[in-house]
Design a protein around this nucleic acid. Structure first.
Length: 401
DNA sequence: AAGGCGGGGCG
DNA sequence: CGCCCAGCCTT
């Protein structure tokens, strides 16, 4: 086993040093750049990260710049990248580095590990890549590569397996080459020892790969399947403004915690029970009920009386744990011209057009921490939206023009 | 140990 | 379509 380990470490390191990808965060060893890149790379592919990394570093080139930036700007820079708590944690970490270490990321494992959003993998990555400390950095790539090379049959979905592989990986780090070796391990996983069909022939360590020798390289690693996401049926509305809000659309900000925290979105509501029938085909009666539900939501939450004008789109969006099926209605503020009672029209005039309603929900209980705002197309550039709503809004404005 | 937490790309 | 991706946090 010692022979196989030494062979693995030497050959893999040599392979990496013969040539590796020219990635933006490999330009230098600035710990801040390494830190930002590693947070972005959590559960996210290299090709996806590259443009985000460039833009982020241009906007927030130093720990201090990030620490002092408005949170909404940081989120906006993260828009579309997903797992938005990473952005908030990163900024919280930057503030901590400013306060405790005068803006200098310390060459100290425990200090790095204590930063928000920095777990075992990222700690090892920062310590090894930025400071060349011999700490393992075990991610999905490393678990896959080592599971195959050593023919390990432990379920890599179990936390205990990662701990074991960390011990193994730590023992493989060549003297004085922690940063290069850890990156080599991940580079091999990304380019050669890929999940589906590994390219064993060009692999620098194929000769002693246990899984390969057993013909089991496609069976490993073993990983229990994730549970399928649960379905949620949601009804959203695109409300067009009138008068001073003409040409604008109503949006709202999500609560400070939980799914898509603090991101902006179209107003929508969760439909209780199984509404799959309603989404399947047109059912006039139920469609009317849905429209009423939308009206009630915005009257209660935003003090606005809207008039749904028709179907806009159906959209599916799959998160890791929830599958949203969304029906989107268009709506306007055409109450006055509608057949609704005069007192409703009066309510619309007194509440629907006040500044309070435009700015938010002042005067109403704000238990959901939801804030409403009318925005023009250009104003989308300032507010962070998750991709699913970004697509719907862009589609709306394309059709409008 | 299990579940919450995005979004995209690939076979 | 399913599966995976340079994971972490809370419970």
């Amino acid at each position: 086993m010692q022979v196989e380990k030494q062979y693995f470490s030497q050959e893999l390191l040599a392979w990496y040093r013969r040539g590796n990808r020219d990635l933006p965060w490999r330009q230098n060893k600035d710990p801040y750049r390494i830190w930002v890149s590693e947070i972005m790379l959590q559960q996210t592919r290299v090709d996806t990260v590259i443009p985000y990394f460039e833009r982020f570093m241009a906007n927030f080139p130093t720990v201090q710049a990030l620490a002092e930036a408005p949170e909404e700007e940081v989120l906006k820079c993260w828009e579309g990248l997903g797992y938005y708590s990473r952005a908030r944690n990163l900024q919280a970490g930057a503030k901590m580095v400013m306060e405790r270490y005068m803006g200098i990321i310390p060459d100290d494992k425990d200090a790095v590990s204590s930063l928000k959003g920095v777990g075992p993998y990222t700690t090892g990555a920062i310590m090894s890549i930025a400071f060349n400390r011999p700490e393992p950095a075990v991610d999905g790539n490393v678990m896959r590569v080592l599971s195959r090379y050593f023919c390990l049959e432990d379920d890599i979905a179990k936390p205990s397996t990662r701990v074991g592989i960390e011990k193994l990986a730590g023992g493989l780090i060549p003297e004085g080459a922690a940063g290069d070796f850890n990156q080599a391990l991940m580079e091999l996983g990304a380019l050669v020892c890929t999940p589906k069909s590994p390219s064993c022939l060009p692999c620098p360590v194929m000769e002693h790969c246990a899984a390969r020798m057993a013909g089991r390289e496609t069976e490993l690693p073993i990983k229990t399947k994730a549970k399928p996401p649960r379905h949620e049926y949601r009804l959203a509305v695109i409300v067009e403004g009138v008068a001073e809000h003409a040409g604008k659309v109503l949006v709202r900000q999500r609560p400070d915690t939980g799914l898509l925290a603090q991101m902006w979105e179209l107003p929508h509501l969760l439909l209780e029970g199984d509404k799959s029938g309603l989404f399947a085909e047109s059912a006039p009666k139920e469609q009317g009920e849905l429209a009423e539900a939308a009206i009630r939501m915005l009257e209660t939450d935003a003090g606005l009386l809207i008039r749904p004008t028709g179907w806009f789109a159906d959209a599916d969006h799959i998160f890791s744990h929830i599958h949203w099926r969304m029906r989107v209605y268009a709506a306007d503020m055409g109450i006055v011209a509608s057949e609704l009672a005069a007192e409703s029209a009066a309510l619309y005039l007194t509440r629907g057009q006040t500044d309070e309603a435009a700015a938010g929900v002042a005067g109403l209980e704000d238990e959901r921490q939801e804030r409403y705002r009318w925005i023009a197309r250009e104003e989308m550039d300032k507010l962070p939206f998750p991709n699913l709503f970004l697509k719907l809004l862009n589609e709306y404005w394309i059709r409008k023009s």
